[in-house]
Design a protein around this nucleic acid. Structure first.
Lengths: 192, 192
DNA sequence: TACATTTATTAACTAAAGTGAACGAACTAT
DNA sequence: ATAGTTCGTTCACTTTAGTTAATAAATGTA
């Protein structure tokens, strides 16, 4: 199970057995049932998440309607804004599937950075990389039509379309469920 | 001039005079004329930028048309994706105004981190914060209509609308210049 | 199994954005 | 000053998304 984590990290640094052991001893791998709310609007939490298995999503409720903005699957991590700016959250986090997550608060992070300073370098590099990638995704979104965005998602994360209800994909693409349904129809007819 | 940098950093850590001196001695403050291309599509660069004064933007050229996706003004910083993933750039970076920038490559960063380890913590914290904020901006974009996005920009960065040509704002909002022109008209008529 | 709820599709209609072209105003450069 | 760009607006037209509502299909649950 923890192999997902170590595999992911091995792309950046090779951990010693000591380091691996220290991580496992923190005992921060937790199981959650599908539908579990990890964070609610208005709450303040100090937890960050790394997905070992399963899928979680962030969503807003605008005029009573859910707007899903991001999905996190295996080997992806989420540091909620409320953890960083210490303000109550604008959004919800919940489990799209039964999931196994690493859950770490600032105290745990400090502890690790203290024991293994290399981890701080790792985290800096990782978040710089995530930032640049997120910018690239945002750029893509801005410069594409809804249809292109759907095709793009189809290319880059095909499994996601199987794992997640379509109305959540729709708002992830900045659309209503009806529009996404139409786009899919248009594409399937056009392809024939 | 360097006050812009030190002011910004003071929100996160208080620098000693030694540290300030060390930064200034790197001699990485550079001047650029409006229109200067800092990075071109297809190029590979190891430079990151921090804006002391002025404005720079990133843009793509898609089917011969410029698509501006981000603006960076005073006290904002840009680490291009090509610096991080070592692949040639998909986009251009150029100066919207005469600008004074801090330009730093990986070697310079290493040097600083070596001398002042606190800087690595700072950079980790900063990029985590930027990542969370960028996600929030992206969420906003996805959940808003073009008109709301324009109004939102009007609120959050009113000066930008004065400093930057409107066709660049348009693609920044994911629109054609014609659509933005219409939105502005609609809003000005509605306001009367 | 049967019932209730959630999710996806379809349709008719409205509103808004994309497209291509034209025009004038503003800015540059010589 | 003037010639040449660049930029913003407007227009007519096409395409696509939003909205509201109805229905069908799939899923979950007693």
């Amino acid at each position: 199970m923890e192999q997902i984590l170590f595999n992911y990290l091995s792309k950046y640094i090779l951990l010693t057995d000591d380091e691996k052991k220290a991580i496992l001893e923190l005992d921060i791998f937790k199981q959650f049932k599908k539908g579990t709310q990890l964070l609610k609007e208005g709450e303040l939490s100090d937890n960050g998440y790394f997905v070992i298995k399963g899928c979680i999503r962030t969503f807003y409720i605008v005029d009573g309607v859910e707007k899903t903005t991001e999905f996190y699957t295996e080997a992806e991590s989420l540091e909620p804004l409320c953890k960083i700016n210490k303000k109550t959250s604008d959004y919800f986090i919940s489990c799209v599937e039964d999931s196994i997550l690493m859950v770490a608060d600032s105290e745990i992070e400090q502890e690790i950075f203290q024991k293994f300073p290399r981890f701080e370098t790792l985290c800096r590099v990782l978040s710089e990389e995530l930032l640049a990638k997120n910018k690239a995704d945002f750029d893509d979104f801005k410069t594409s039509s809804p249809e292109q965005r759907y095709l793009n998602l189809f290319q880059s994360r095909p499994q996601l379309l199987q794992r997640v209800p379509q109305y959540q994909i729709a708002s992830y693409l900045g659309l209503t469920p009806q529009s996404l349904s139409r786009i899919r129809k248009r594409l399937s007819v056009g392809a024939k």
